[in-house]
Design a protein around this nucleic acid. Structure first.
Length: 163
DNA sequence: GCCAACGTTGGC
DNA sequence: GCCAACGTTGGC
């Protein structure tokens, strides 16, 4: 019997990350000293599981939610392997999780680095207007996941539309 | 600010 | 393991 589990894992190298524009926008990332941030505070298991699949260099669409014009505002990339989210251990953090121990991290994160800003965002309306993008997880009815994989062809289409 | 959709929690 | 209650998300 050959064990094939590992090789069957889908090769996802493109992602969409949602950020509440009020808390940390793409401009905040641009204006930060290192132009890199750690994506803390993910507290949804499915989102976490996607994050655990991330590899350094994966490309990231940076999406603003809960704002006047929701949409993709810039391009970023994964700049680390997944590692424990330190806020889960901090009783003073709103993201504190008392179930987590240093030996058993429940919530993981990756570093995200700025790549480039778009002259104009590709808005949610734009995304919905393109039938080719209909399969995007972001656009699924009722979808609230803050971390979703993006198919390579969709990623290419979005970049082409915006650059 | 509203509200529909979703995830999580906890009583049973 | 069901499911009601609750909290959160996020577009509008």
């Amino acid at each position: 019997m050959t064990k094939v589990t590992g090789s069957l894992q889908k090769d996802r190298r493109y992602w969409l990350l949602k950020s509440d524009a009020d808390s940390f926008s793409f401009d905040d990332l641009w204006n930060s000293r290192t132009r890199t941030t750690y994506w803390d505070g993910v507290r949804n298991f499915q989102a976490r599981n996607y994050m655990r699949e991330m590899q350094s260099g994966d490309q990231v669409l940076y999406y603003h939610s809960s704002c006047k014009v929701p949409g993709v505002y810039g391009l970023a990339k994964v700049a680390s392997l997944p590692y424990p989210d330190p806020t889960q251990f901090d009783p003073k953090s709103p993201y504190y999780d008392q179930r987590a121990t240093k030996d058993k991290s429940i919530w993981d994160l990756v570093d995200i680095a700025f790549v480039r800003k778009f002259a104009n965002p590709l808005t949610l309306t734009d995304l919905r207007a393109d039938p080719a993008l209909k399969s995007m997880m972001l656009l699924a009815p009722g979808s609230r996941l803050s971390v979703t994989p993006v198919a390579e062809e969709n990623f290419a289409k979005i970049l082409k539309a915006v650059l």
